Computed example of a mutant assay.
Amino acid sequence: MSQEKTSVPGMENSYYANKKNNMYSRTTTPDMGSRGTMVPGMEEVAPNVGRHESSAKGGAPVVGFLYSISRQGIGEYWPLHIGSNKIGRSGNCDICLKEGTVSDIHAELNIKQMKTTHKILASIKDIGSKNGIFVNEEELDYSAHECFNNDLITIGLNYRLLLILIDTQALGLTVSENFIPIEEEEDVDFPFAAPKGTGGSFNPYDHNNRPMNNGTVAMDGVQGTEPGGTKFM
Rank of each mutant, 00 (worst) to 15 (best):
G83P: 13
G64P: 10
S129K: 03
G10V: 07
T27G: 07
T117I: 05
R51S: 14
P79C: 09
I164E: 15
P204W: 03
I155A: 04
S70T: 09
D167C: 04
I153N: 15
V63R: 02
I105C: 07
P61H: 02
K119G: 03
C147N: 08
Y24G: 07
T6A: 05
I69W: 06
E99I: 00
T230L: 14
G64M: 06
T230H: 12
N13P: 01
D94C: 01
G156N: 01
A144V: 04
I180H: 05
S129Q: 04
H106A: 11
I120C: 06
G229R: 06
S25P: 02
N21V: 02
D104W: 06
G59D: 15
G10L: 03
G156L: 03
M23G: 00
I133Q: 13
H118Y: 08
K130Y: 06
H145M: 12
L157P: 00
N110P: 01
V62S: 01
I82H: 03
G156T: 01
D189M: 13
T117D: 10
G36W: 12
L173F: 10
S143E: 13
L163D: 12
T168C: 14
G221I: 02
N13T: 10
P211C: 07
F65K: 08
G197R: 08
G59S: 15
L97F: 02
G75W: 10
V217G: 06
M219K: 10
I87W: 05
D94N: 09
P47D: 11
P47G: 11
E183F: 01
T116L: 14
M233Y: 12
I82F: 02
H207K: 14
V222C: 06
P30G: 07
G91R: 00
K57M: 11
I69C: 11
S25G: 03
N18I: 00
L140G: 12
